[in-house]
């Protein structure tokens, strides 16, 4: 328990709906250790994205506490939350969310521009990240010229380039075919093993689930199952 990077206690999230409120998450108690490769699974509307957003300091809990890397999410100022995301948390989205006017290289470099790094240090880090995802030959391409799988690999490189502690991936394979999905997952698995980065997914994709080392099932905003999986060898 000493390597805990995320600690959620009695976490509840309400959204105002009309005059009342809608409870998207209720009484979540979870903790994640460094280097986990975990997934949130559950039907649509079960609260997966909401939970990832809170962990990523994009949203705050209504009740209970969310501690990420020793910091209480609710207590962070805008600036502190931005710092936390910039240095320690990488995001991967279902829709890739690359900046269309930037090249692959510039997309990956973007997060580093906010940090105090020299041009040379940045170049090294970006090329390294592109190497991890096997896209060094595409550094000058624009996202519009890439396939979906390649876009998602760029997004992975972007989330990994700053060597974060945690990567949050919200349905990263939902827009990809099975070949690309496997490729993406294998890439992330490798990065998880080599760099010890904590990965948390949200998914209802069977392909993703077979890679997970821990599977947390959500239903109606509650944790209904939390199991550590003996890794079934890939096929």
């Amino acid at each position: 328990m000493n390597n805990v990077v995320i600690d959620l206690k009695r976490l509840t999230k309400h959204f105002p709906v009309g005059n009342g409120k809608f409870t998207a998450l209720s009484d979540i108690n979870l903790s994640f250790s460094k280097g986990e490769f975990a997934g949130l699974v559950g039907p649509s509307g079960s609260g997966k994205t909401t939970l990832l957003n809170i962990i990523g300091s994009l949203d705050v809990p209504s009740e209970g506490s969310a501690n990420v890397l020793g910091k209480s999410i609710a207590g962070l100022s805008q600036k502190q939350a931005a710092q936390l995301r910039n240095y320690h948390i990488g995001f991967i989205f279902q829709t890739y969310n690359l900046l269309p006017v930037y090249t692959v290289y510039e997309n990956v470099e973007f997060a580093l521009l906010l940090q105090n790094m020299t041009e040379g240090e940045r170049r090294k880090a970006v090329m390294q990240a592109l190497e991890w995802v096997g896209l060094t030959d595409k550094e000058k391409s624009k996202p519009s010229m890439l396939s979906g799988g390649e876009c998602q690999r760029v997004a992975i490189a972007r989330s990994m380039v700053k060597q974060p502690d945690i990567v949050l991936a919200d349905e990263p394979t939902a827009n990809l075919d099975s070949k690309n999905s496997h490729h993406i997952l294998q890439t992330m698995q490798r990065l998880n093993e080599e760099l010890g980065v904590t990965f948390i997914f949200s998914t209802h994709d069977e392909k993703v689930m077979q890679y997970l080392k821990r599977k947390i099932s959500l239903a109606d905003g509650r944790v209904v199952n939390d199991e550590t999986v003996e890794l079934i060898a890939n096929r």
Partner: peptide
């Protein structure tokens, strides 16, 4: 909007 959200996720403050 999605681009704006991405900037924030990448670590920019809303003011930035």
């Amino acid at each position: 909007k999605r681009e704006i959200g991405t900037y924030i996720a990448l670590g920019l403050t809303r003011k930035q």
